[in-house]
């Protein structure tokens, strides 16, 4: 390939990445060191924003909640996505219809889906799940103001929303596992569980790593579903990092853009730390291939 062709082909990507990724990242880091109001040049304040962010107990609670939610949801997405993928992969002619049906929750806008999901637990709007739980247990569960029931609702909604993605990617991985390898394991007398655990799962480790990476990034950025699902998130310790950033930087016309940027930089660092083992594993696998 000629140099000019190469440059012509990569130039659009470089421009888009520069405009949408590098420039905002640079501006975020720059603002994190400034006091910034809309429409005005920032004033350099050194590490004051980082100091303010790290001394706010709300940030600690937000990190704890977000990381906990990420751990539970990602683990469920991988296990649940795998089981669902195996079941759907085994279907015959009905597979496209079942797949299409299962993908509905993924294509519904997150905020709309979360609002509808909240109604399942809200007595004001019928609250089918709330009614069932109250009838079965004899207790009125306060889904929106008690921290743990609310965390359960948030986790269930996030899993409901993201499970189809996980399932879809894992199905693609399953279809790449050679049939003769599975057949050989059965001839060797491996049980179904053993075949999955020792043959199929190691074969699609890269795919599972990919699902983990994307899911971790998505759940760490949990934001819009908390608006309908946790209206009292700040008071009950269910404020995600993104919601905390929004509340600090923008709510009610607030203008703490410098502080918001500093928390954003800290969030980026957190994402990098949590993704490092997965990225390292995938890179290692790619080198071996």
């Amino acid at each position: 390939m000629r140099r000019r062709e190469f440059l012509g082909l990569i130039a659009p990507s470089v421009l888009v990445m520069g405009g949408l990724l590098v420039l905002p990242l640079y501006r975020t880091v720059e603002w994190s060191l400034q006091r910034v109001n809309y429409g005005e040049a920032g004033t350099f304040v050194g590490l004051d924003n980082y100091s303010a962010a790290l001394s706010d107990p709300r940030l600690g609670r937000a990190v704890l909640f977000t990381v906990g939610l990420t751990a539970v949801v990602v683990a469920t997405l991988i296990v649940g996505g795998y089981l669902l993928a195996v079941m759907v992969n085994g279907l015959g002619r009905s597979k496209p219809f079942v797949l299409g049906f299962l993908l509905i929750s993924y294509v519904v806008p997150n905020i709309v889906g979360a609002t509808m999901f909240s109604w399942l637990f809200d007595a004001n709007f019928g609250g089918v799940v709330n009614h069932l739980v109250s009838t079965l247990t004899g207790h009125e569960v306060l889904w929106f103001i008690d921290p743990w029931p609310n965390r359960l609702v948030i986790a269930l909604d996030t899993i409901w929303f993201m499970l189809p993605f996980s399932m879809l990617v894992i199905i693609a991985g399953l279809q790449g596992v050679p049939a003769e390898v599975i057949e050989a394991s059965r001839i060797d007398g491996a049980s179904t569980f053993r075949t999955h655990w020792s043959v199929i799962i190691p074969s699609i480790r890269g795919v599972l790593g990919f699902v983990a990476i994307i899911s971790i990034m998505d759940v760490l950025r949990t934001f819009d579903q908390l608006v309908p699902l946790s209206p009292q998130a700040t008071q009950i310790g269910n404020e995600s990092i993104m919601l905390y950033i929004y509340n600090v930087a923008f709510q009610d016309g607030g203008q703490q853009l410098g502080l918001g940027s500093a928390i954003n930089v800290l969030l980026i660092l957190l994402i990098v730390i949590l993704l490092y083992p997965f990225i390292r594993g995938i890179a290692k696998e790619a080198r071996q291939a």
Binding site: N124, F125, E140, L142, W143, F144, I145, P231, Q232, Q235
Partner: peptide
């Protein structure tokens, strides 16, 4: 309602509606 601190005006309307 014990969850009143999650109620905005539309939700209060809903309580009256139902």
């Amino acid at each position: 309602d014990p969850q009143v601190t999650t109620f905005d005006q539309p939700r209060v309307q809903q309580q009256m509606y139902n």
